[in-house]
Amino acid sequence: MVQQVTQGIKISAETNFEGTFYKNYKIQFAFGYKITIENQSKDSVQLYARHWTILDALNNLETVSGEGVIGKKPVIKPGESHTYTSGCLLSSPFGAMYGFYSMINLNTSKKFEVTIPRFKLSAPYALN
């Protein structure tokens, strides 16, 4: 698990390898990840957008941006957390993801970014 705190918001990421399959005659490596967003600040915050960079071992780079996370824009009160799971497909058995969440402090109306720490994606059978 990797963790990082930015402006009182703690991001924790856990990953798992889901398996392989063929899509359009190409092998795909499926990975799942669980993100926990914990509000350690004194103010309520709302996550309104996500921005991801996804890399694989073949030098493929994909960026993904959009509203909320899995269709939600959670409000997280002080001392509370929001956890969700999602996944991605890679063309290789190794990769990484990182990015940031765009948030707003609901007490001050100030917008800010929270770093999503870089986490590795790796198929266990491909490790030495």
Rank of each mutant, 00 (worst) to 15 (best):
M1W: 02
Q3S: 14
Q3L: 10
Q4H: 13
Q4Y: 10
V5Q: 04
V5H: 00
V5I: 13
T6M: 05
T6F: 04
Q7V: 02
Q7N: 06
Q7M: 03
Q7C: 02
I9L: 06
A13Q: 05
T15G: 06
F17P: 09
E18N: 08
E18M: 11
T20E: 14
T20K: 12
T20S: 12
F21E: 10
F21N: 09
Y22V: 14
Y22K: 12
Y25W: 04
I27A: 03
F29D: 08
F29T: 10
G32C: 01
Y33L: 03
Y33V: 03
K34I: 05
I35E: 01
I35Y: 04
T36W: 06
T36F: 05
E38P: 06
Q40D: 11
K42N: 10
Q46W: 04
L47T: 02
Y48P: 04
Y48D: 15
H51D: 14
H51K: 10
W52I: 10
W52L: 15
W52Q: 11
L55Q: 15
D56R: 11
A57H: 13
A57E: 11
L58S: 12
L58W: 00
N60D: 15
N60A: 15
N60V: 15
L61R: 14
G66Y: 01
E67L: 15
I70F: 01
G71C: 09
G71K: 00
K73H: 02
K73G: 01
P78G: 03
P78F: 09
G79N: 08
G79M: 07
E80K: 11
E80Y: 02
S81R: 06
S81N: 10
S81I: 03
T83Y: 00
T83C: 00
T83R: 00
T85H: 00
S86H: 06
S86R: 00
S86L: 00
G87F: 01
G87A: 01
C88N: 04
C88R: 01
C88I: 09
L90W: 13
L90G: 13
S91E: 14
P93Q: 13
F94Q: 14
A96G: 15
G99P: 12
G99A: 10
F100D: 05
Y101R: 01
S102I: 02
M103S: 03
M103A: 05
I104K: 02
N107S: 12
T108L: 10
T108A: 08
S109M: 10
K110H: 11
K110P: 00
K111N: 07
K111D: 06
F112A: 02
F112T: 02
F112Y: 03
F112K: 01
E113G: 02
V114K: 04
V114E: 05
I116F: 13
R118T: 13
R118I: 05
R118G: 07
R118C: 08
F119N: 09
F119P: 09
K120I: 01
K120N: 08
L121K: 14
S122Y: 14
S122M: 14
P124Y: 13
P124K: 12
L127A: 12
N128S: 15
N128D: 15
